[in-house]
Each structure stands twice: as C-alpha cells, then as structure tokens.
Simulated assay, not measured.
Amino acid sequence: MTKNWAQWHEDYDNPNSWLAQRLEIVQRDLRRALVHAPCDPDGTRRLISICAGEGRDVLPVLADDDHGYAVRALLVELDQNLSQRARTTAATLGLSNVEVATADAGEVEVYRSVTPAHVIMACGVFGNISSDDIQRTIATLPVLLTVGGIVIWTRGLLDNGYDPSLEVRRCLEKHGFAELSFSSPAGSRNRVGMHQLSAHPAYAAPVHSCTRIFDFL
C-alpha cells in the first residue's frame, strides 16, 4: 500500500512527535551549514533538498531575517500536493531564489542547474531506500557537491534496536566526507548527521555520466 505522505507530514504539527524533534535538530544544523559551507564569490550558496516534502527543513531557515542567508535552493519532491505546498510556502515567505521541482529525486539530471552545490539535504531519504541505493547515493554526493560542501542527513533507529546510521557514517567516510556533527538524542530514534566533503574521490564520475541513484520504496 502506498504511504499517504501528506498525512505523514501532519506529525510535524505535533511538537512532541519524533518528526518535530528531528526537524528542530535538522534546522539547527542547516543554520550552521549556511555559515560554514563554501560559497560563490558573491556570497551565494547553492542548496539541494532531496525528497524535500513540504520544505519544512529548509524554507523557514532561509526566511530567517536575522541571518539574511544568500541561498539559491532547489527542492525536489515527486508528490504533487507536497511540492505545491512547498512552492506556495516559498512564495508566501518571499523566497524568490527557491525553485521547487515536482520531479523524481532519484534522477541525477534534475539537479544539474544547481551543481556543484554547497549544501545538500538528504533528510528522510536513507530510511526509505534500499541498502544498495544508500551506498550508491552516498557515492554520488561528491559528484553533486563542491569540495568543502556539507550534507545533512537522517536515519532512524529500527524497531529491533539496530542503528543503521552506523553504516551511513562509515560509507560517508569511505567517500571522502569528514563528520562535523552527529546527533542521537537520549530516548529518541532520531539520528541526524552533518558531514563535509574533504576532497573529491579520484573515482568520482562527472555529473553527466550518472543517471539514477535510488528508488523510493
């Protein structure tokens, strides 16, 4: 049965839900990334949000007038209802440099207009794709990022107590990333990591040679 993603997003509105708790951590890390990630000569940072949903991870942070982030963002979301909500929110917040694409985030071509990016959001992705696709996606991140670029990702604890975030962290290290932070709040299944690309691996393929990196389960 196909999951009702619009209904799933409603848990964000419950401040005691695991989604709301994760959101707080992710937004905190994004604020940090938008200060420390590299940028273009004019100070602009390019941001990609994979499987962006309604854009709750990104849009409120970009609209924070206290910081005045200069960001060109691409949010990719296949669900038409969710992507339209993100598009409406971006317009309401006056975020003219935010593009919301109703597209398959597993296709690399959709990111071409904003690569190499300075920040990539991969939140809610690794828990919904296969182990092989997780490895393939992580191996592709250096293709989409500039050196020094930052990826923020999430992966929840499984019901049996196993923590798959350990594998994600090992795979990121293997592909040239250094860990900046890792959040695992006590009593929570939430795991949020922030990693920085130290150098492009010698084997990294050019973006035009990559096609599909994952299928959402």
Rank of each mutant, 00 (worst) to 15 (best):
L180E: 14
L19Q: 15
E54P: 06
D163C: 04
T154I: 07
I213N: 00
V192Q: 02
D40P: 05
P185G: 06
Y162T: 13
L141T: 09
V143L: 05
A117W: 10
L34I: 13
L75K: 07
M1T: 09
D11S: 13
A90D: 02
D57T: 08
S209C: 11
Y111A: 06
L59T: 05
A20S: 15
L172F: 15
S209G: 05
I134G: 01
H118G: 10
P60S: 03
S165M: 12
A37C: 11
S183E: 13
L217W: 07
D64V: 03
T88L: 10
P15R: 15
R155F: 07
A70G: 01
V147W: 00
P41L: 10
H175D: 02
T44H: 13
A70H: 14
T211L: 07
G149I: 00
F214D: 06
A70N: 10
T92G: 04
G187T: 10
E54H: 11
C51D: 13
P15V: 10
N97Q: 15
T89C: 01
L30D: 05
R169T: 10
V100L: 01
V108F: 01
V76F: 08
A199W: 00
R22C: 03
T146W: 00
D133F: 05
A101V: 04
N160S: 11
P142A: 09
S131W: 05
R22D: 03
M194P: 05
Q27I: 08
G187A: 07
V76C: 04
A139D: 09
G53S: 02
A33Y: 03
L62S: 13
R85S: 11
Q27E: 13
